[in-house]
């Protein structure tokens, strides 16, 4: 939603002032901030029944969901955090929540692992096919000379897993 409002603001300001380099630069800076703030953490669960009819090795149970949790942090010189995703387990609502932290680094495997295991446990499920992915991006290509962009970097961590209800039983393979 902030991105959408930002888009409306760009259209509005450009229609009033006309498009020039200063407006474009302002827009880009705002877009960077907004995009970083809104795209730092995400949690995706497949709809119920999407895994029906598929048998998974290592379990007799019926898998209920494929879950993907993702967290990104942006840094200066890969060390100083600017903004980072904050994946947290909310024990009251029994759900994983994605937030944003300014100048703090919450991107860690421990946080992702705690979130996904707590989510599975609260749904009375075990996990199979758990897989982690870590990657880093440099922004040297963004600026023309590469000098400014090279100051910035981002780290992304994600985890993917399949939930199997405990009540459906396990197979000892």
């Amino acid at each position: 939603m902030p991105c959408f409002l930002y888009g409306l603001w760009i259209i509005h300001s450009n229609s009033k002032k006309g498009i020039n380099m200063r407006n474009i630069l302002k827009s880009i800076i705002c877009a960077v901030v907004v995009a970083m703030a809104t795209g730092c953490a995400s949690i995706t669960c497949t709809s119920p029944g999407k895994l029906d009819g598929i048998k998974f090795k290592g379990t007799n149970g019926t898998p209920s969901q494929l879950v993907f949790v993702d967290c990104t942090g942006y840094y200066i010189l890969w060390i100083i955090p600017i903004v980072s995703g904050d994946v947290r387990w909310n024990s009251e609502k029994k759900t994983i929540e994605g937030g944003v932290s300014l100048f703090k680094d919450h991107v860690s495997r421990e946080n992702l692992q705690k979130a996904i295991t707590s989510y599975a446990d609260s749904h009375d499920c075990d996990l199979i096919d758990i897989a982690y992915n870590d990657s880093g991006t440099s922004y040297a290509g963004v600026s023309q000379s590469g000098a400014i962009g090279a100051l910035f970097g981002s780290t992304n961590m994600s985890v993917s897993a399949v939930l199997v209800p405990r009540s459906s039983g396990k197979q000892g393979e």
């Binding site: 795209g39 995400s42 995706t44 009819g53 598929i54 048998k55 998974f56 090795k57 290592g58 494929l66 993907f68 993702d70 096919d129 897989a131 992915n133 994600s158 993917s160 399949v162």
Partner: peptide
């Protein structure tokens, strides 16, 4: 319909 190592990745 029997599988293993199901893996998902979303990338923006």
């Amino acid at each position: 319909h029997r599988i293993t190592q199901l893996y998902a990745l979303e990338d923006d």
